[in-house]
Write a protein that binds this DNA or RNA. Structure first.
Lengths: 195, 195
DNA sequence: CGTATCATGTAAGGGGTTACATGATTCT
DNA sequence: AGAATCATGTAACCCCTTACATGATACG
């Protein structure tokens, strides 16, 4: 259960409730993973049943009671073992690449629009990651331990988003210069700033 | 069904049997997707039931009979519509990134070994992609239509693998210079050539 | 008191992985 | 005949997505 072990990592850093974990996956942990609260609740239940987690209910003055999970000694041992086990190669599946590949069999203009939307999305994510890097890790050389690991994974996110932006920029350059429409009916302008 | 439509793209390019498709996914189509023959057979059956595919048995002189599938008019229409429908954003999930992030809670040396294995893997894939680009598309500027699309998707694969290689190289540089072991017990040498 | 938000869940179905099964053909 | 390969498939299980459900607290 890859997500389960990702949750063990997150809970080792900071005991949290299900909602807290979902929020954290939207942010710092989510450069290379994501999860909905439905998945998270199910896995928290399974992992508690296995004895990997402790659960304590925490009453809040102005909000509903929440359940805060923390990693047990058994959970820490399990995580340690998983971290040392051989990693299956990560597979990157891209619906967008499938569409670009099959553009001959569809509507070329519609697919160019999809590529433009995706490029805007990747640009926004890249800008967000770079903002986080500057804000949270202004002096990377001084980092050690957990913070250094977090920074290096964020660097991976930045490099990946950069590659995706470069790819789609190259792609759109080819088709913009090749088609060279006399009356431009482009849906958006690629030269705009990222959001 | 994302894989189903990827199969429609593949079969639009070239009618094939299940085994042929599995082989093609291992090669050119598989820069951004993959599939086992078990998945493929199941989907071929479903898509034939929907009328998207025609199936004809082809007897072979020196091998067992195989079923060759081709796209019907209904299948072509379905593919055309899918290609124009809004694309959900592609999510990149990485077990390796999760492990690097959680290295504090495991065996640092084992995780460095995992990173080295992954780097060798990415280097090999990058070298393979670059070989294919040179062999199959020696003059990219002259390409049009289907071949141009195939080349541009291959470019995406190259840019992605390059980013992954850069990332892990940076990662290992940090920890190699930081740890600076007096008696080196490294499992492999990072300076070796890609396979 | 009705609405919005917080927090926790259940259920159905699609998609993917792994292990296993079956028949045909070629090679030794 | 026995082993290897080709080609097609079944079944079990895990993971993820989507839609729906429930109760508690705050706001107007």
């Amino acid at each position: 259960m890859p997500l389960g072990h990702a949750l063990l990592v997150a809970l080792s850093e900071q005991p949290s409730s299900g909602v807290d974990l979902a929020k954290r996956f939207d942010k710092s942990i989510g450069y290379f993973w994501n999860a909905t609260h439905q998945q998270i609740y199910k896995l928290l239940g399974q992992m508690e049943a296995k004895g990997w987690l402790d659960c304590t209910e925490v009453a809040q003055s102005d909000r509903p009671t929440k359940k805060v999970y923390s990693v047990t000694a058994a959970g820490a041992a399990e995580l340690h073992e998983w971290l040392s086990a051989p990693t299956p190669p990560d597979l990157y599946r891209s619906v967008l690449a499938t569409k670009l590949r099959g553009a001959t069999f569809g509507d070329r203009q519609a697919i160019l629009g999809e590529a433009e939307n995706a490029l805007a999305d990747y640009r926004a994510r890249l800008a967000h990651f770079e903002f986080l890097a500057k804000r949270d890790y202004p002096e990377p050389e001084a980092l050690t331990g957990l913070e250094l690991d977090q920074y290096l994974v964020l660097r991976g996110g930045i490099l990946m988003q950069t590659a995706l932006v470069d790819w789609l920029t190259e792609y759109l350059d080819v088709y913009d210069t090749a088609t060279d429409l006399p009356t431009s009916d482009r849906t958006s302008d690629r030269t705009e700033d990222p959001a």
